[in-house]
Simulated scan of single mutants.
Amino acid sequence: MKKKILWGVGGIIAVFLALIIVIANEPQEKVTSNLPQKLTPSETIKAFDKAAQAGEIEETKKYVVKSILKGFENGAYPHYGSYGGFIGEYKNNTKSLKIVSEKITGNSATVNAQVTDISNYKDDEEYILTKENGKWKIAK
């Protein structure tokens, strides 16, 4: 009887250790990819920039408030034609983005960044973010 109990406990421990080994060998981004991310305002700007530079239009939408996306749908930004046109213009004209400062006040934040365009002109940009469903989103 004792052998069966020990084998049962030993079997559980072996399975548990095997599970730990499998999880430890998975790439960290794969393990955490389904977890909700809480980005800071600066990280939100960087994530938007990275997605825009890669031309990932749908990914960039995760970092922008719904009212801006609705504005594009309703033709509020005719210069760009569409949200995709805006991202295309951003991608084609932006060389790099460097965060300079961040200030959070309650559910709003200001991020100042230095944006370098394709002709190496550096411009200071101020991004206004707000919390939407608990996540920082670009509002202006």
Score class of each variant (00 low, 15 high):
Ala14Cys: 12
Ser119Trp: 09
Gly134Pro: 11
Asn92Gln: 13
Asn93Phe: 00
Asn34Ala: 14
Ile5Val: 14
Ala47Asn: 04
Val111Gly: 02
Gln37Arg: 12
Lys137Tyr: 08
Lys140Asn: 14
Lys135Asn: 11
Ile128Thr: 14
Gly134Gln: 09
Met1Phe: 13
Glu56Trp: 10
Tyr80Gln: 01
Glu102Trp: 00
Gln114Ser: 12
Lys70Asn: 12
Ile13Gly: 10
Lys38Ser: 09
Ser33Gly: 09
Lys122Pro: 00
Ala14Phe: 11
Gln53Thr: 13
Asn74Asp: 13
Ile13Ala: 14
Glu132Asp: 13
Ala47Pro: 07
Lys122Cys: 04
Lys62Thr: 03
Tyr127Asn: 07
Glu73Ala: 01
Val115Gln: 08
Leu17Ile: 14
Met1Ile: 13
Leu35Phe: 15
Trp7Gly: 05
Val65Lys: 08
Ala139Pro: 04
Val15Cys: 07
Asn133Ser: 11
Leu69Tyr: 04
Ala51Arg: 12
Tyr127Gln: 05
Val15Phe: 10
Phe72His: 01
Leu19Gln: 04
Ala139Cys: 06
Gln53Asn: 13
Ser42Tyr: 01
Ser108Ile: 15
Ala76Met: 04
Trp7Asn: 06
Gly134Cys: 04
Lys50Glu: 08
Tyr90Trp: 05
Lys135Ala: 09
Asn133Gly: 04
Glu26Ala: 10
Glu73Arg: 00
Lys62Leu: 05
